[in-house]
Amino acid sequence: MSIFSLTLRRDLLLVIREPAQGMAVLAFFVMAASLFPIGVGPESALLRRIAPGIIWVAALLAVLLGLPRLFEADFLDGTLEQMVVGPVSLGLLVLGKIVAHWLSTGVPIVLLSPLLAIQFSLDRDSLLVMVGSLLPGTLLLSLIGAIGSALTLGLRNSGVLVTVLVLPLYVPVLVFGAGALEADLAGMDAAAHLYLLVALLALALFFAPWVTAAALRIALE
């Protein structure tokens, strides 16, 4: 089996063994986004207007919240060191870890998002656009977040630092992700935004694992 799938299976097994942390991230996503309809009031036109931004920002913050899980545990117990010393391609290994992180954070977020769509009174077509933008979007968030997570590994207050590092890089993802939904709600075609989002994803898939691997080597030195 390739190193990618081995790492993927290992990390998913670890998530299944200790599901509490992943659940907390999902609970945060649902609760943070649900606060807005409660706070703003049940005016459906207004809710529909602010839905794209709020759902996307909530998803983005939830992914950010789950980032420390990506490398920190392996760093602290020494397994990360073993992975770097091992005779395998660290880039592919890192990609496996990132995809596992996405499957345990991003995909559940996408699956839960229709629940929020109801609260923001989105119709069925907009819901599809939302899911279609969140699916590549959350993977993109995980890929970019991995770089920041690796760069701040082992530092004190790394949580705050990773936020400061990563949030500016998340802006394009937010612009195109929320933009797709916004365009759809305004009656325009969302395709252009989605294409740009997927183009960004292709770029990140190619570069992020190697940049992250390089950052991990620096962190372990």
Partner: peptide, 20 residues
């Protein structure tokens, strides 16, 4: 550091604990 994953059993640690 022992590089042992506390969530996995001893046997799993040897089989899948460190990919590669």
């Amino acid at each position: 550091q022992a590089a042992v994953k506390r969530e996995l059993s001893a046997e799993e640690n040897l089989r899948v604990g460190i990919p590669g």
